[in-house]
């Protein structure tokens, strides 16, 4: 356990997010973290913020949808993350390439690179599941700094201790470079906020434009109707 350099306001406020293909087991894993495995989760087509409190940590964990069409919005979340969690179905070899591409799509984004990377090689309970070491090769991340692969089974009851170990690992990694990460996040978030505000203003202007056009068309139509009768 690394020594904690400092504890701002008593607790480290940390934000993490779960990424991974649909069916990887992200939502199930988060339910396991909460202590009660949900065996009946629906596909996520959205966003669920989950808050966890520990002695040293105040953790916000984002659960995102992993469906192919939904992956385009992942990038909207990178800025504020202290670390990245990626979940893979270790038994679904047919989708290993897809998973690798999805992961590297994250790692290549400048808002995500060099942040602690936790991989859960999930579904270890399945007979044909690859080991954590094999998954490291599958994802081709041996050379990525600050990563760790933990094999786990989100469905296991009682909750698989590796899930907690993985989380502990990433929280410790984040803690040792907390100041640096926080500075980076602050800067990136300010940029995002300014960009979104600009985009929203522009959109409102466009909508006003459309509405004026539609009103004009409507008036035009009414005039023609009156003319015809």
């Amino acid at each position: 356990q690394p020594s904690l350099p400092l504890q701002p306001k008593g607790k480290y406020k940390i934000t993490l997010a779960m990424f991974g293909l649909d069916l990887a087991g992200k939502t199930t894993l988060i339910s396991a973290l909460s202590g009660e495995v949900d065996r009946n989760v629906a596909p996520t087509v959205g966003f669920t913020p989950n808050r966890f409190q520990g002695d040293a940590w105040d953790l916000m964990m984002f659960d995102l949808g992993g469906g192919a069409r939904f992956r385009g919005v992942w990038k909207e979340y990178y800025s504020e993350l202290h670390g990245i969690i990626f979940v893979i179905d270790s038994a679904d070899a047919a989708r290993f390439d897809e998973a690798k591409d999805a992961l590297w799509g994250i790692l290549h984004d400048e808002r995500a690179t060099d942040k602690p990377l936790l991989i859960f090689a999930n579904k270890q309970d399945k007979a044909d599941a690859r080991t954590a070491g094999e998954i490291e090769s599958v994802l081709d991340i041996k050379s990525v700094p600050r990563h760790h692969v933990f094999g786990c089974s989100a469905m296991a009851e009682p909750v698989d201790p590796n899930i907690e170990k993985g989380l502990e690992w990433v929280l410790n990694e984040v803690t040792v470079s907390f100041l640096e990460l926080s500075e980076r996040i602050k800067k990136q978030l300010a940029e995002d906020k300014a960009r979104r505000a600009r985009e929203f203003e522009a959109q409102k202007e466009r909508v006003k434009g459309y509405q004026a056009d539609w009103a004009k068309e409507e008036a035009e139509k009414n005039k023609q109707k009156q003319g015809a009768s």
């Binding site: 996520t44 966003f47 469906g67 069409r69 909207e76 979340y77 985009e199 929203f200």
Partner: peptide, 23 residues
């Protein structure tokens, strides 16, 4: 449009203070 397209058009990824889902 698909749910993913709708969520982008609505700028849902900017939402942080609540749970959301598109069906």
């Amino acid at each position: 449009l698909t749910p993913a397209e709708v969520s982008e058009a609505l700028q849902l990824p900017a939402v942080r203070d609540r749970q959301w889902q598109v069906e």
